[in-house]
Amino acid sequence: MIHASSNEQPLWQHHSAKQTLLRWLGWFWLVAITVVSWQVMNENTIWAFVSDAPEQAVDIGSRMFPPAWGYISNLWEPLWDTINIATLGTLLGIIFAIPVAFLAATNTTPSTRFVRPVALLVIVASRSINSLIWALLLVAIIGPGLLAGIVAIGLRSIGFIAKLLYEAIEEIDESQVEAVRATGASGVQVIDYAIVPQILPAFWGISVFRWDINIRESTILGLVGAGGLGIQLNASLSTLAWNQVAMIFVVILGTVVISEWVSARVREAVL
């Protein structure tokens, strides 16, 4: 389109053409890998089941309605358990996440060489593994029940809270820290007077946000035996009592909506 009138124009064009080529190559590879992945993934897919799906959906849908409203009397206790798993698990996560965050932040870690990588590893390990997998492990180790659920939620929360918290610690205003240090304050006092006030709003926001997520996650932990609504869900699923399943979904949805509202209100109040 543009015919070069100066010497710089064609140079720029050339570079751009190379970049365009690279981009197209990138897109081509993405499409190619996706297509191959699709084929590999569906090698064993039985398409008869897939084409059958709409009928199955209609069937399940008709069994779900109307939901078994009366079944709710069986759900209050598991619901209470679910909330306790989420809350106690979040508390557990917070207790461990705080020291990990301080060890991981470049400006508070005692050693960037040795301590910080360990703290970062703890964060990555905790974040990579879903709470349901933690629950699966813990149920096998310490047996089914609320404790496994609480510890699972706690272990998953450590990485989430510690990551966001250490990022907040790294963003603080260093001059305030310097000023408190200049008065002759000890290390703990510097944390108390200069760092904590700066990260406190972020800390509350992160904790409540994680609690909200944990409510969602703890509704299903029972599928692997870690207590709460999931246990009822598992029972109803295995007996194919779809109208009870529908009722459980309604309760889960209600809980999630309320917890989201609570967490939004609290975050508003804190920030």
Binding site: D173, Q176, A179, A182, Y193, A194, Q198
Partner: peptide, 18 residues
């Protein structure tokens, strides 16, 4: 020793949220 030396900062360096 730092207790004996007072310091006043550029941009105040107060702990804003205290």
């Amino acid at each position: 020793a730092r207790r004996r030396i007072g310091m006043i900062f550029q941009e105040y360096a107060l702990v804003e949220r205290l």
